[in-house]
Simulated scan of single mutants.
Amino acid sequence: MTGLEDRCRLVLIVPEGDDAAEIARQLEEALSGGDVASVILPQYGLDDQAFQKRAETLVPIVQAAGAAALIAGDSRVAGRVKADGLHLAGTLTELEEAIGKFVPKLIVGAGGAADRHQALEIGELRPDYIFFGKLDGDIKPEAHPKNLALGEWWASMVEIPCIVMGGSDPVSALAVAETGAEFAALRAAVFSNPKGAAAAVAEVNAILDEKAPRFEA
């Protein structure tokens, strides 16, 4: 969420996995590949203690690369590990409380909008961004058409930035950019990429540099 470019930027979602050292290595590699705006750390199946321990390792790696580290779901962990923000996909009440409590000290973003009505309800609370899709929703090579449609509708009429979940193919980031969304989120497209995470980030940035529409200043 730092240093706005004039085009859609990349958001990384940390993959699931038991090997914390390997995930840290992959993340470091990915961030060395080029521009990344922020990194979202989901809890997956980890208990709170294990999640905090993992976040303590990963957050400094993200911040050292100049990206914002966002913790999904747990504000206590976000505070303890000195993350830059919080990604929430719970109830409107939880979101409203978090925005009241943490903004502007922390970035507070919102997921969980399955349709336009829910998105507008979330938008009324003025989160720092809205996220269309699921953090582990990259099950096909391309981004989900519904998320692309929501991103395009939102970007055309609401000033709050949006992140749209891409697919498992790095090229899916371009379809996200073409909606007018400010950020494209990738997970498997980077971390399960046969060319390696750094090459994947470099490829996505090259595609966006060349083909993504430019925002008007």
Rank of each mutant, 00 (worst) to 15 (best):
Gly3Asn: 15
Gly3Phe: 12
Leu4Trp: 12
Leu4Tyr: 11
Asp6Ile: 09
Leu10Cys: 08
Leu12Ile: 13
Val14Ile: 13
Val14Ser: 09
Ala20Arg: 04
Glu22Pro: 00
Ala24Tyr: 08
Glu28Ser: 13
Leu31Val: 08
Leu31His: 06
Gly34Arg: 05
Ala37Ile: 09
Ile40Gly: 04
Pro42Cys: 06
Tyr44Thr: 05
Leu46Asn: 04
Asp48Ile: 14
Gln49Ile: 13
Phe51Trp: 02
Leu58Thr: 01
Ala64Thr: 10
Ala65Met: 06
Ala67Asn: 01
Ser75Asn: 06
Val77Ile: 15
Ala83Thr: 05
Gly90Ser: 08
Leu95Arg: 05
Lys101Gly: 03
Phe102Tyr: 15
Lys105Thr: 12
Gly109Tyr: 03
Ala110Cys: 09
Gly111Phe: 06
Gly112Val: 04
Gly112Ser: 06
Ala114Thr: 11
Arg116Thr: 09
His117Gly: 06
Ala119Val: 02
Leu120Cys: 05
Asp128Val: 00
Tyr129Leu: 07
Ile130Val: 15
Phe131Met: 09
Gly133Cys: 09
Asp136Lys: 04
Asp136His: 05
Asp136Arg: 05
Lys140Val: 04
Lys146Phe: 11
Trp153Ile: 07
Trp154Ala: 04
Pro161Thr: 09
Pro161His: 10
Met165Asn: 09
Ser168Gln: 08
Ser172Phe: 09
Leu174Cys: 05
Ala175Leu: 14
Glu178Phe: 07
Gly180Trp: 14
Gly180Asn: 12
Ala181Trp: 12
Ala184Asp: 07
Arg187Asn: 13
Val190Gly: 01
Pro194Arg: 03
Pro194Asp: 13
Ala198Tyr: 01
Ala199Arg: 09
Ala200Asp: 07
Val201Gln: 09
Val201Cys: 11
Ala202Gly: 03
Glu203Trp: 08
Asn205Val: 05
Ala206Tyr: 01
Ile207Thr: 12
Lys211Asp: 11
Pro213Glu: 11
Arg214His: 10
Glu216Asp: 12
